[in-house]
Amino acid sequence: MSVDKATVRRIAHLARIGVEEEELEGLSGELSSILNWIEQLHEVDTENVPPLASVNHATLLPREDVVNDGGDPDAVLANAPERHDDFFAVPKVVE
């Protein structure tokens, strides 16, 4: 499987990673070889084997429905790029 330059441009945009035009060629080669390496897995016969969601055989442990967190806006907002009162303030995203 090969990843062309247009695909690299698209997934970089979806991941909000800035990629220069001259980097596309190299990345397309690297990503293609990674995918080709992983595709070796297709050689294994997985007929009648259910898809695997996790390699860990434990079951999901739940928590009880109690309020024991939150109530500390200063901690939540400590790394905010900009804070107005108790809100995060970010560049306008208008709909």
Partner: peptide, 22 residues
């Protein structure tokens, strides 16, 4: 009472960012 994956409160109308877990 609390959120799907955290222990923060779900009540409506609280002051901003007062019911937020990390």
């Amino acid at each position: 009472a609390s959120k799907l994956f955290s222990g923060a409160d779900t009540s409506f109308g609280a002051p901003p960012n007062s019911q937020v877990s990390l």
